[in-house]
Design a protein around this nucleic acid. Structure first.
Lengths: 232, 232
DNA sequence: CCGACCTGTCACATGGTTGTAACATTGCGT
DNA sequence: ACGCAATGTTACAACCATGTGACAGGTCGG
């Protein structure tokens, strides 16, 4: 995070391919890490905290999909953008890959050009903010580093989606957002879920925050929701 | 929900496909225009100024990419969002499409659901949304971003219709409007409601604003209403 | 394989909003 | 002052947006 250049971890068991990718990315101004299997990759993730991962579908031992799932499951790495690489003909796995948490999907062979373009796109999409500071309002504290929420020092137990929702709200206070906007911002642009789903998660979040903070998330009838410290 | 009233131009050389898309979009509340080639499309763009374009990759004559580039080059149309449509197997062209200025890219076949979802996402992303300034008069503040009205920092509780009514008035001060004009502007042209309904909403709005601002909305007997800061 | 968890969706409950009508009041011309 | 028309005011039933609880499928860890 020190320099402007983002760090990309390349995970593929074939060294020449890694090399080719690395060269392309370095020419585009990225730092590169390389790993041949999931174990090494995991070490790199822990040690160097890359900004994104290029992950081959086929890996010796733990497969790419499996590894992606694992990363998405752990809180510290859940937000790490992943682009899946796959050989031609395996396109049917696309859905599976995306469902495993991949943010994009590239079919080999691909041009360096394409790679860089998609990588940029994903980074742009997934790095709206780099909030390292805890956010506090009332007795409510959201700590992005610890990935935890506390209300008056009491831990609040919420699911990943509610966490992201709350984080979005705490970084976008006072303004009203439509359900569609929230789906876009919190769920991610490419999913399709019912707008009413937002209501349910709002409900869960309100419930989890308890009555002490219930008023923080306000309903804007006919429009959507708003996070505000001011009374309605 | 969304009476967005946005207009979408569908450009594809196959009429059945155009038709299918048009039906899907119309069910979602969009207006549709259709064109079979780049020439017709361009006329439509000039004549009807659509809010976005669905552009098939393959077109007789000028190709989709070419057309997209042309649109992006001209100043008047440079901001027009474009979604590219492409048949399966042409995925390699994706980068080229995006570089030509397309805002998104959908592979045929696609579900109407997906189409509408992506379309919404693109429109949301490309619609300049945040530049709306709060309007202030006296101690009365209407903030479109927060979707909130305050009178001397005290929140004013009004329904959606009163909100829209007030917003219209605050952006059209000093002039008298007939009930018919207000129905047109605030309710939307094609609804049928009694003109007296306006009176009721005016009343509700006056009441909500309180005595401090009651004089702002003036009755113009025999004509309609007027929003004015000057005393009558 | 099971059980705990999370998620998205539904059906239903609830409460706010809306349009309309009925009645009260005001303004204006005579 | 009177009558008429325009507007103010209130009440209300239908409607609609949201709140709420339950459920099925899926994932993950044991």
């Amino acid at each position: 995070m020190s320099k402007s250049g983002k760090t990309v971890l390349i995970v593929d068991d074939e060294a020449p391919i890694r090399e080719m990718i690395a060269v392309a990315l370095e020419m585009a101004g990225y730092e590169c890490l390389e790993a041949a299997n999931a174990q090494d990759a995991h070490s790199h993730v822990v040690d160097h905290k890359p900004d994104m991962i290029l992950l081959d579908w086929m890996l010796p031992g733990t497969s790419g999909v499996e590894f992606a799932r694992r990363l998405k499951r752990e809180e510290l790495t859940a937000e790490l953008p992943i682009i899946m690489l796959t050989a031609k003909g395996e396109e049917d796995n696309k859905v599976q890959g995306l469902e495993a948490g991949a943010d994009d999907y590239i079919t080999k062979p691909f041009s360096p050009r394409e790679l860089v373009a998609r990588l940029k796109a994903v980074l742009r999409r997934t790095t709206p903010q780099g909030i390292e500071e805890p956010i506090e309002v009332g007795g409510l504290v959201l700590d992005p580093v610890c990935h935890r929420v506390t209300s008056f020092d009491v831990p609040v137990d919420i699911g990943p989606t509610e966490y992201r929702l709350l984080q979005f709200f705490m970084t976008h206070q006072e303004r009203a957002y439509s359900r569609a906007q929230l789906l876009d911002q919190v769920w991610g642009g490419n999913v399709y879920v019912e707008e009413r789903t937002v209501d349910v998660h709002i409900r869960r979040l309100r419930k989890a925050l308890g009555q002490a903070h219930e008023h923080l998330i306000q309903t804007v009838r006919g429009t959507g929701y708003r996070f505000s410290t001011k009374a309605s």
